[in-house]
Amino acid sequence: MKKKWISYPYIIWMILFIIVPLILVLFYSITVRTEDGIIFTLKHYKRFMEPVYLSVLFRSIYLALICTALCLVLGYPMAMILNGRNIKRRNILILLFVIPMWMNFLLRTYAWMTLLERRGLINTFLNMLGFPSMNLLYNNGAVVLGMVYNFLPFMVLPIYSVLNKIDRSVIEAAEDLGANAFTVFRKVIFPLSLPGVISGITMVFMPAVTTFVISRLLGGGQFTLIGNLIEQQFLLVGDWNFGSAISMIMMVIILLSMGIMSKYDQEHEGGGLW
């Protein structure tokens, strides 16, 4: 069958709307427009090395790492519980776990605004108990909470699917050989579940480090992460060159973390294909 031509519209479309735009971002990040025309420069990348901007980068990575760690600690036990032996009950538990994910992430973030705000439910409850109102919104804690809430399923589901594939007889063998529950977990279950843990870490860290909506809504106006910085450069300041440079840096961070993660993954899988 000679039907290759049928995919040409798709390929042209993707080149036009995926490849060309990325090349434009790269182009803007290494050029500057002057009176003599467009010249190549690295000054936008140099500008990013200023402490003001580096601190934004470090804060983004720091908060994303905290969020990833929290998701792992909260999510691993949950994945184990989801992987129960009763199949019917397991399906219901998983369905219940996935449903909130189907809600628009903007609305999920907004839902926390209504809980954490000054006249919100949590503060009303505190007042009823005789405590003064607290500032729960517009700080680091609120941003991390919003991230964990939005991205927890991305950690739990990959771990669950790997746990689900573990051969139960391996666990039984370890038990027969005299290992207690903790040793079985440490020596058998956890090492076997590492691929799931790694893809969970990647899937949580990436959206957490690039978000600008969660930090904008729960962190308030003055609170800036790298995503907000990019948004500001494009939509407020209008400095496309600097905005593009930050976007390129963000892409590199993401590709690097994906690369490191997949390399680590391969080592534990017993070597990749090559």
């Binding site: 995926i18 060309v20 971002v25 990436m206 959206p207 948004e231 963000m250 892409m251 993401i254």
Partner: peptide, 18 residues
Amino acid sequence: YLPVVSPDIVTGLSLMIL
């Protein structure tokens, strides 16, 4: 896979630039 894995913000702003 490229648009599936790259962050939405980069896809969005690169299209805006285009």
